[in-house]
Design a protein around this nucleic acid. Structure first.
Lengths: 140, 140
DNA sequence: TATTGTTATACTCTATAACTATA
DNA sequence: TATAGTTATAGAGTATAACAATA
């Protein structure tokens, strides 16, 4: 089976990237899921329900997640004006700072892994990776 | 920054692969870490300490992990003959069956992602991925 | 004394089910 | 009635610190 190598290489690459992400998040006392939460909030001001969809979690899990992030001053809850059942979640200045810092460190780390790759190699890897990723792939 | 695309593509690819892994594990009521445990035990009969090193976890975490796997009949503890402080962990028939089944499903899933890639594309992606992976990269 | 593993404790993360408030 | 969110509860997973048994 020639494709054992293919599957193994993708699996190991995914562990490499995820471990880097978890390690960098940990340096800021963040879990992977808290990091993803901040990542989503960088570009959106979603409802609790939206967050559940984005992150693939039950609403009760989102409640706890946002509780803990709010306790640390990284996000805030705002009641919706149009529907008083709804809660909007926003990132704070502190949260934004942390998200940017983490993203920069992550990019640096990935770059360091790819130090041995030429520009052409990187472009080729980028294109091949993109062809594997469906439009529905979750983001950080 | 041209490399934003590179970093993003690798991050998304890693989420794609890890989510596939987690989803398949979940179908067998396994967590990612339980799956990795079984993966290690397919080829080794390590001590608790060895497992901690392999999986990057504290020995107390390994105790709980092995407890839960043992309770499900997936692994067994054996006292070492040479050093009575040491415990050796082995996979059971049931555990092995589960590990093989999961690995096969995972390979299938990865193949399905790569359905649009030619043989040459796969080879190229495999080689590029391998060049990113240090020899110390953790395995499933 | 040093090492191996377990246990006690505490916290994060997750889901299910029951609940409250609003629509 | 239906929907948005919270709370109560339970369990996995993790680490730190204290412990027991063995070396």
């Amino acid at each position: 089976m020639a494709d054992e190598n293919f599957v193994d290489a993708l699996a190991q690459l995914s562990f490499l990237v995820q471990n880097a992400l978890a390690e960098i998040a940990g340096r800021h006392d963040l879990s992977l899921i808290q990091t993803r939460l901040l990542g989503v909030l960088r570009d959106h001001q979603p409802t609790m329900q939206d967050l559940g969809r984005h992150l693939g979690l039950d609403k009760s899990s989102i409640s706890g997640l946002v509780d803990r992030a709010e306790r640390r001053g990284l996000v805030t809850r705002t009641p919706s004006a149009s529907d008083r059942r709804v809660v909007l979640v926003s990132i704070t200045e502190d949260g934004l700072r942390l998200a940017r810092q983490g993203a920069a460190e992550f990019a640096e780390r990935i770059e360091s892994f790819a130090a041995g790759l030429s520009e052409d190699d990187r472009r080729a890897l980028t294109v091949l990776a993109q062809r594997l990723i469906p439009r529905t792939a979750p983001s950080a």
